[in-house]
Design a protein around this nucleic acid. Structure first.
Lengths: 194, 194
DNA sequence: GTCTATAGCTGGATAGAC
DNA sequence: GTCTATCCAGCTATAGAC
């Protein structure tokens, strides 16, 4: 791994853990095992490093999502696979956490990858849900774009609940609850229990 | 308003906007219009001020939620009223945002009000949903606790999406999507469209 | 490319006068 | 109770040697 790469990875880790304000150039250097002069040789400063880190993180998450969403199966199956995939729940979402960072949101360059990543994800999910509606898999009363937003929000909010409780339970419950609702909204569900 | 109160309100505002690490005693004093010595006379330091601020904020949000959840109507009606109530969407949730603050989560005293507030909210909603199930208002396949977690997560995640997009639209969509799913899961829904 | 030295500024708090 | 002075550590970056 090159010096640049070590610095970027170090920055990614610290941004995830401590956010932008809470991450100092010094800490980045130490975690990367790189000297002061070296860091400022490769990057102009903290914002420059953050841009590289954020861009890489956003792209990685997008690729991870596509791995599940682009897989085989029905709409609900693919969404279920995405929601159920292994996650470091208590660490939260490295992209979502940036939305709480005013210095990141205030800088158009730093904000962009975050905005794009969520825009892409919502559209991707909306498309899959639309397929599910067309296929008669889901009740036609559902709005694909709105439901897609709910899916992403449940994930992001699930992280919040898990961190608040210092336990993964609430995250799993939120996902279970969402899948329960989706199942109940499936065209085949109606005459089940009761 | 007393000096203490001004300091607490100032701290609440700054914690909401910039988080714990991003909020300095100096900024608190300036926003409150209170001198250095005065601040340290009334509070032992930043953690002490934060505790007062966080406690007050958590209690306020809880009371606001109860205002809707304790109102009249069916389970779905009360939850709808809660989800639809006016919110400063782009500012995010002042309690939820604290879960992203490692220094807050690392301090048991500061963490407590956050944890309690979300625990209370999830239980309150689970109780209401259980009533809805008993009343035959919702399909019995739904799990009250899981669905409650989904409701809270959708709200919290809705804030994230709104901030990422710098627009309230995604928040509203997430809420719409959730209510759409809840409606589809209502016992009366089955034979609607299609 | 990497190192050390240096710099100005802010964070968070204490001390003691009034 | 409130004010000013002071303190040390850390943040962020630049300068210049090697």
């Amino acid at each position: 791994m090159t010096t640049q790469d070590r610095l970027i990875e170090s920055t990614r880790t610290l941004l995830w853990e401590r956010g932008y304000v809470g991450t100092s150039p010094k800490a980045i250097q130490q975690l990367a095992g790189v000297g002061q002069g070296s860091m400022y040789h490769h990057f102009t400063g903290k914002p420059d490093l953050a841009l590289a880190a954020i861009t890489r993180t956003a792209e990685e998450r997008r690729a991870q999502a596509e791995a599940q969403l682009g897989g085989p199966g029905t709409a609900v199956e693919r969404i279920t696979a995405y929601l159920r995939r292994e996650r470091e729940v208590l660490r939260g979402c490295p992209v979502g956490r940036l939305t709480q960072d005013p210095d990141v949101m205030a800088d158009p360059a730093l904000r962009r990858p975050v905005e794009q990543m969520f825009a892409w994800l919502r559209e991707r999910l909306a498309g899959i849900l639309a397929e599910g509606l067309t296929a008669g898999e889901l009740r036609p009363v559902l709005d694909p774009a709105a439901t897609a937003a709910t899916v992403v929000a449940t994930l992001q909010g699930g992280y919040v609940l898990a961190r608040a409780a210092a336990a993964t339970g609430p995250f799993d419950q939120a996902i279970d609850g969402l899948l329960g609702l989706l199942t109940a909204a499936a065209t085949s569900a109606p005459g089940s229990a009761a």
